[in-house]
């Protein structure tokens, strides 16, 4: 039983990382109607930025905060100077653009800092605490808590502030938003920046575990996309829940299903995905979109 609870909590923490990435993808999708395959790559670049700063003697927490500012700017710049041209066009072309961006970012990171694994210092101690007879790693709890706090803050921003209202207006109907005097372009930049920040938080938290490489979040991207499909593109809550389910299930499957093991656990969300797509193609929580011809 002890192992089981430990696995669930570890799964919750990796699930939170997928959730952050998935939420960033949903955020971008609701604002601009496209899937950003470079979301993980941008987070990796932010993590490298933080890693570089810590190597220059900057304290870790400051480095991470600076990397968050950096990734906000990165997201905004990418939106304005790269994606803007493709946003109202064919979504498939825009997807290819983000794939190009992913290649470019991976290339830049690999060129600047090599493709070797780098040690990223952990924000939390690696100890475990005993809780009701179960030992749980502090890192897992810390990762989960930080990401949940980030998501709650984001939700508060969207629901409780004027900026959030404007962002939602742009996401729902850019034309009407523009007619009512909102600076649509700048708000889209903010939306992309916020998504990149969410990714950067996830990247900084998961980097100590995965060790820093340019392709560090490629697998996490697949998990996040699976969570996005499972939860439904239209439902942020559903996406987060789906990401947690995936994180927990894959951890359990890795230990309790001998054939899957640790190397094949990435197949778990994929199998789950197949079942859900056949049975309920709009996702667990999504609603069917109806398009008028």
């Amino acid at each position: 039983m002890g192992t089981f609870i430990q696995l669930v909590i570890d799964g919750l923490s990796t699930g939170s990382v997928y959730a952050a990435l998935a939420l960033a993808i949903v955020l971008v999708h609701s604002a601009t109607g496209l899937i950003n395959f470079a979301q993980g790559g941008m987070a990796v670049l932010a993590a490298y930025f933080a890693w570089y700063l810590t190597n220059q003697g900057v304290p870790l927490i400051v480095a991470i905060l600076l990397s968050i500012v950096f990734s906000f700017a990165l997201g905004a710049v990418v939106e304005r100077w790269l994606m803007r041209r493709f946003e109202r066009g064919d979504p498939d072309t825009a997807v290819v653009v983000t794939i190009g961006l992913l290649t470019l970012i991976t290339g830049i990171a690999g060129w600047l800092w090599t493709y070797n694994n780098q040690q990223f210092p952990s924000l939390f101690p690696l100890d475990t605490v005993s809780f009701l007879g179960v030992s749980v790693s502090i890192r897992s709890i810390g990762t989960t808590v930080v990401i949940v706090v980030a998501m709650v803050l984001l939700q508060a921003l969207f629901v409780g502030t004027k900026l959030g209202l404007a962002l939602r207006a742009v996401a729902i109907n850019p034309q009407s938003a523009a007619f009512s005097g909102l600076p649509v372009g700048r708000l889209l930049m903010v939306g992309w920046g916020l998504a990149a920040v969410l990714g950067a938080v996830a990247g900084a938290l998961v980097a100590p575990q995965l060790t820093l490489t340019p392709g560090m979040l490629d697998n996490a991207l697949v998990y996040a996309l699976a969570a996005v499909i499972l939860g439904g593109l239209t439902s942020p809550v559903g996406v987060v829940v789906a990401a947690w389910i995936i994180g927990i299930l894959e951890n359990l499957a890795a230990v309790y299903v001998p054939f899957i093991g640790h190397d094949l656990k990435i197949a778990v969300p994929f199998i789950l995905l197949f079942v859900v797509l056949i049975v309920r193609p709009q996702g667990l929580f999504g609603r069917k979109t109806v398009v008028r011809v």
């Binding site: 395959f37 498939d92 997807v95 697949v222 996309l225 499909i229 990435i266 197949a267 994929f270």
Partner: peptide, 26 residues
Amino acid sequence: ALAAARLGGLAIAMVTVALPIVGVPL
């Protein structure tokens, strides 16, 4: 494709990205 094409739009891209990533450990 039978599964991926069920969900319109970009689902095929989102599902097929998993193929090489699952394929290598498989």
